[in-house]
Amino acid sequence: MGIRLVLRGGTLTALLSGEIDHHTARILREEIDGAAAKARPDRLVLDFSGVQFMDSSGVGLIMGRYQWMKSLGGSVVLANLPERLEKIVSMAGLDKLAVEREVASREAGK
């Protein structure tokens, strides 16, 4: 499990990698919330391109960040969801959230 946080303008991008389960979701949540509390971004981009595995704890992580950003008047974008995560994402109805492909990582790479 890994995370790299990139702040650019009002967008905070969290580049996630490895396996997201109950154990690692807790660590990711602390990292993301800590950075977001400091930066107060308008937009939180969760980039899943490096994520190999995710169970429903990852769904809880996304839903929690979504609620939190909403309460701050911001938004959450799910970027670069690999095909292997599509089943759990659509099962949880998260595909109805803002989903972007290949945008966030290019932005973050600049």
């Binding site: 979701a25 429903s56 704890s57």
Partner: peptide, 15 residues
């Protein structure tokens, strides 16, 4: 608690 999605058994059943 609020960070649990409540989907554990639903995931097991669908997978």
């Amino acid at each position: 608690g609020e960070e649990r999605a409540g989907l554990g058994f639903a995931v097991m059943q669908s997978f």
